[in-house]
């Protein structure tokens, strides 16, 4: 890749000049807790993205998915997420133990709007909490408790522009190499070929969902 001069940086004043100011109604839609609509959306969401901040100050996004409603609402200010078997890097847990700040984006397939929930999180192994997070006969050994401070419905424009739920969009996947090919390139260890990683992934997907 050729180096070139870094793109011009502008300050917030310039940003405001370009994007304008929000309608007061938009600012008012930020709730300080979950209302019944937020709870309804979370109860039907099979997928959310967690944003946390690492010890190095870098933000990190991590996807979570399971049967719709896998994130449970304990009350209007408390959510709980099950920990399902993953890669054991436990990045999100590492991050929230360092800095409890958390941002969550909930998606519902076919639904244009998304729900953003921000708050502070901590890990929990509370035996009173874990059984309610059972899935496929397994009770998780760990969960993330989120104390909600902000919740708001994000309009569906990004989703609609991106055509995220349009069935034709699935053809994009055919244009990509498999996950095994990409993982092999990223890992770069001899013997860990795409085929080996492909098998490992398939096995992991079968055993550890």
């Amino acid at each position: 890749m050729t180096t070139r001069t870094r793109p011009r940086r502008v300050d917030l004043a310039r940003v405001r000049e370009l994007v304008g100011h929000p309608d007061p109604a938009i600012e008012a839609k930020v709730l300080d807790r979950l209302d019944p609509y937020c709870e309804l959306l979370i109860a039907h969401s099979p997928y959310c993205v967690l944003a946390t901040v690492g010890p190095d100050g870098l933000a990190d996004c991590s996807p979570r998915g399971d049967d719709p409603g896998f994130v449970r609402v304990l009350d209007e200010r408390t959510l709980v997420l099950p920990d399902r078997p993953g890669n054991q890097l436990a990045q999100s847990f590492t991050n929230i133990c360092h800095d409890p700040a958390i941002g969550m984006l909930f998606l519902v397939p076919g639904y244009a709007e998304t729900l953003r929930v921000n708050g502070r999180a901590y890990p929990s192994d509370d035996p009173d909490l874990l059984p309610m997070l059972e899935a496929r006969g397994r009770v998780p050994s760990l969960a993330t408790v989120v104390e909600v401070e902000e919740a708001y419905l994000h309009c569906g424009k990004a989703n609609l522009r991106g055509g995220l739920w349009e069935s034709g969009r699935q053809e994009l996947a055919d244009l990509l190499p498999s996950g095994g090919v990409i993982a092999a390139a990223h890992i770069g260890i001899d013997g860990l070929t795409a085929a080996v990683l492909e098998d490992d992934l398939a096995d992991d997907y079968q055993r550890n969902l």
């Binding site: 019944p36 709870e39 309804l40 109860a43 449970r72 304990l74 009173d128 309610m132």
Partner: peptide, 14 residues
């Protein structure tokens, strides 16, 4: 059962 596996919570809330 608010701390159940979610079936009764769904019925009651939604």
């Amino acid at each position: 059962c608010p701390r159940g596996r979610g079936g009764s919570d769904y019925v009651h809330r939604f």
